[in-house]
Amino acid sequence: MKSITRKKPLEELERELSGLDRIFIVGCGTCATMTKTGGREEVLDMKDHLQGQQDKVVTGWVVIPTACDDMTEAVLKENGKAIQAAECILVMACALGVHRAVEYYPQKPVIPALDTLFIGVEDSPGSFSEVCGQCGQCVLGETAGICPIVSCHKGLLNGPCGGTKDGKCEVDPDKDCAWTLIYERLKGQGRLDLMRKFHPPKNYQVVPRPKGIKIA
């Protein structure tokens, strides 16, 4: 499972950094490195960009091995001086990494340099897709391992809509119709009866937002 990110447009970043001239940059050695949005190379490019085109001072930078885990605290501590010298922390990690930085530096502006798109997997090198919407009511056992919540544009539970054409989705002919895939796979498994089962309206409040859970 990876958190898939995309770089924010430079104009948006410029806007968010206006008035913040001394910057500490945080990258992530896991997902954002894989998606080439916040690895070492991208962090150094950002440093050059900020110091060059945007006339900013980069007080320091670090690529945290996994920005969302507990190690982040130790790594940020090691860089405490450079962070103190900065007016803000620019995080080139997914929103989980942004939250970690906010947690340790609640007084300092933390600016995300990336947009977090979805939780997904790498299908083939450089190609990522969403596989789970964390809906709280997993139906993968009945849908041959293909999630209709995230793989069907409309999140339908009871089969394809009228917009499917030759196994493709009405919103984009390059996208597969999830329900055609589910049908073909269930057919191969000899379990098409599962597709005939009526699903009543889904519970969209399994864990109401703000979501949280305590393990006993």
């Binding site: 409309k154 999140g155 339908l156 009871n158 809509c161 917009g163 009543p200 309206p201 969209y204």
Partner: peptide, 24 residues
């Protein structure tokens, strides 16, 4: 009806609801 996708229409950034589908 389930309804066409939002993105084929003229308010392309709207939130598609689909709380229910046609059978539901």
């Amino acid at each position: 009806l389930t309804g066409d996708a939002v993105v084929v229409g003229d308010h392309k950034e709207a939130k598609g609801v689909f709380d229910l589908d046609s059978t539901q």
